[in-house]
């Protein structure tokens, strides 16, 4: 009898637990939707005097944690700083940038969850993403390339278009999709982030690594036995991303971008980060 009672209480508890879980999920979601409809990021930034940026921490040249400072450093970070400063100037107030590390797969979720105001994380502007977030005008002219070991004898992506070849990509990047078009027969594997993809290439898990050329050049700088080959085969510029519907912020960011291009700050940053990379002419990037 008491055992039966125990079982019933257990069952009841399980049902209550499920109801509470589902209930809080639904509530959380609705509240979140409500919040994203009513929030105004630019207003919040101005009143908090802080602009929260999501940046990469594993991508050389764009956003890489410096062992000395523990802070991310790179072109994306400098862009975020400069844009913040410019917005502050335009709005006539003081705004401090604040950085949160994001991964390729978490960056959109962080915008949606209102944990960051904007993302500067080597993010390609695509129609799919543009349905979910708003992009600024392009700030970096990226294109996809492949990185191989120098002694591999591979000259271009066409050589990899056979079932024996393995191409390593990074999860949640456009490169995964485009590679299917250019080398449909090759085996494609995805690693969680850039540095893991690179170590997979080094340990022979694949014949080539593919992602945006600028990121691949970063690896060339780091390791002498790899090379970017065959040039870019897509044109996929990067944009700064904000939550969907934040038109005020989007306008402010685009205005700031235009201003820093006009006053030469942009060129200076490009030269700072991409000026001395073998095989890359930084002037090409500023066109």
């Amino acid at each position: 009898m008491s055992k039966l009672k125990g079982k019933r209480i257990g069952l009841l508890a399980a049902v209550v637990l499920v109801v509470v879980l589902v209930g809080s999920l639904v509530f959380g979601w609705t509240y979140h939707e409500y919040q994203s409809k009513t929030k105004n990021s630019l207003k919040n930034i101005k009143s908090a005097h802080v602009m929260r940026w999501g940046v990469k921490s594993d991508t050389r040249l764009f956003g890489l944690i410096s062992p000395k400072t523990g802070q991310s450093e790179g072109f994306d970070i400098d862009m975020a700083r400069t844009v913040t400063k410019q917005i502050a100037k335009d709005q006539g107030t003081k705004i401090k940038p604040e950085f949160t590390p994001v991964t390729t797969s978490s960056k959109i979720q962080l915008i949606k969850n209102n944990q960051v105001d904007a993302v500067a994380a080597s993010m390609t502007i695509t129609p799919e993403r543009a349905k979910i977030v708003d992009f600024s005008n392009p700030y970096f002219p990226a294109g996809q390339s492949i990185l191989v070991k120098k002694n591999s004898g591979i000259k271009n992506i066409q050589q990899l278009n056979n079932p024996k070849s393995t191409i390593i990509g990074v999860m949640g990047t456009m490169a995964m999709e485009t590679t299917k078009k250019f080398a449909p027969k090759a085996k494609l594997i995805a690693m969680p982030d850039n540095s893991q993809a690179f170590s997979a290439l080094q340990s022979g898990q694949g014949d080539a690594m593919t992602t945006d050329n600028a990121i691949l050049y970063g690896f060339c700088q780091q390791s002498k036995d790899v090379a970017v080959i065959g040039g870019t085969f897509t044109n996929q510029p990067y944009g700064l991303a904000m939550d969907k519907g934040q038109t005020d912020l989007q306008k402010a960011v685009n205005r700031a971008l235009k201003e820093i291009r006009a006053d030469g700050t942009y060129d200076r940053l490009i030269k700072k980060w991409f000026g001395n990379i073998p095989g890359l002419d930084w002037r090409e990037l500023t066109k």
Partner: peptide, 23 residues
Amino acid sequence: LSFVAGLDLMYQANVISGANLDP
């Protein structure tokens, strides 16, 4: 396995959510 491209469920979930942006 998903960390090392082991093609398992979790890996496919990461790939799918990377494409459909609906994790």
